[in-house]
Design a protein around this nucleic acid. Structure first.
Lengths: 199, 199
DNA sequence: TATGCTGCTTACCACTTGGTAAGTTGATCT
DNA sequence: AGATCAACTTACCAAGTGGTAAGCAGCATA
């Protein structure tokens, strides 16, 4: 298969899985989006599970390169961390839809625990832990304490990203726009406050 | 229908929807869990959507009573808020499974935006906003700033709750246990830090 | 010209899905 | 004793599910 076609398949699948979830999307629906037959998809990926796995794999790779690239920003480790997290929030690439898919995976992988869970999160978390540890007064905090902080900040980012439609529903499009504008600054404040409060 | 049977139906449905999502659970699966036929479920609730709606409604009510009951705790507003959020984290009732379901709803309600979104979150958020506003140096913060903080804290709580299986997969059962033990204290620190950092 | 490969398609298949229609059973009311 | 009603059940159904089998067009190699 030409790489281009494969990429198109993954794009469609990623978008649809993110929006409707694994069980909410049929192979036929993805194929229709691609203007192909579902058997073409099966021909390329073997099964629905494997297609989903390929989507997840690609996201995982994306995270890896993102983490590798994000070392050059600022000098002070706390500024580096803040910049990195804000970049995660403002989502340069597929961003939101990617976050939605990963949140779904987080909810579903109880059953598919064998494959996915560790995949992207493990290395990603480890990297973030290192960045927190690089901050002076966190150097000798316990593993659980550091991970707690990391997880709190990730939660603050991902939960907000994932809530966009709901928040727009509640506060209206412009209400959400104001919130989205205020959020990064507020997040930076929380990061600073969280890092300063020594464990 | 005896109230008891209805409750049992809602219990089963809630647990299964939380674990596998709306599209991941069939009426037959819920019925099997209840040792009934799926037609019994349809008889009681009319359709799968309505059953799901009833589950959501019950959760919404649960939140309402929880919020109403949580005024008596401490004297200082920041302590009240902290106690309330920690209670949310440690989840006395169905807790985690409930959070999972709501997280799923957050992801799905783009399409069912008409009904759900506003339901539980609207009043719940409004209540939390009031509690933050009760803290001295947040009284004249903008709506977006207050909501940002509220959402960050909710994210820190819910994202962690939802991640339990994944975290256990990565760090092992006892690794997760240590984390879960450290988390509330660390969350309290973050709340204090977040509230102290004035906008 | 034959061979084999990639990238599809049409034709099926067994199974599951949510939902309808028409009972059946047992308790309560009159 | 008869009627009514809620709480179910069995019997279906059309539509969709993921997946298999087989074939076909086009292109490259031998």
């Amino acid at each position: 298969m030409v790489q281009n076609t494969r990429t198109k398949c993954l794009d469609s699948a990623e978008a649809l899985f993110a929006e409707r979830g694994f069980y909410g999307v049929s192979l036929a629906a993805i194929a229709a989006d691609l203007e192909l037959t579902k058997q073409a998809l099966l021909h390329h990926f073997g099964s629905k599970e494997k297609l989903y796995g390929a989507v997840l794999k690609r996201i995982s790779d994306r995270f890896a390169t993102l983490a590798a690239a994000a070392q050059t920003a600022a000098t002070r480790p706390e500024d580096q961390l803040t910049a990195y997290l804000l970049q995660l929030l403002s989502a340069p690439d597929q961003g939101v839809s990617q976050t939605r898919l990963l949140m779904r995976e987080l909810l579903d992988n109880k059953r598919r625990a064998d494959t996915a869970g560790t995949w992207y999160l493990q290395t990603f978390l480890d990297d973030l832990i290192d960045r927190v540890r690089a901050v002076r007064n966190w150097q000798d905090a316990s593993a659980a304490e550091v991970l707690s902080l990391v997880y709190q900040l990730l939660g603050a980012i991902n939960y907000f990203q994932v809530s966009q439609p709901t928040l727009e529903g509640i506060y209206g499009a412009d209400g959400y726009a104001r919130l989205a504008e205020a959020y990064p600054e507020q997040l930076a404040r929380l990061i600073r406050a969280g890092l300063t409060a020594r464990p």
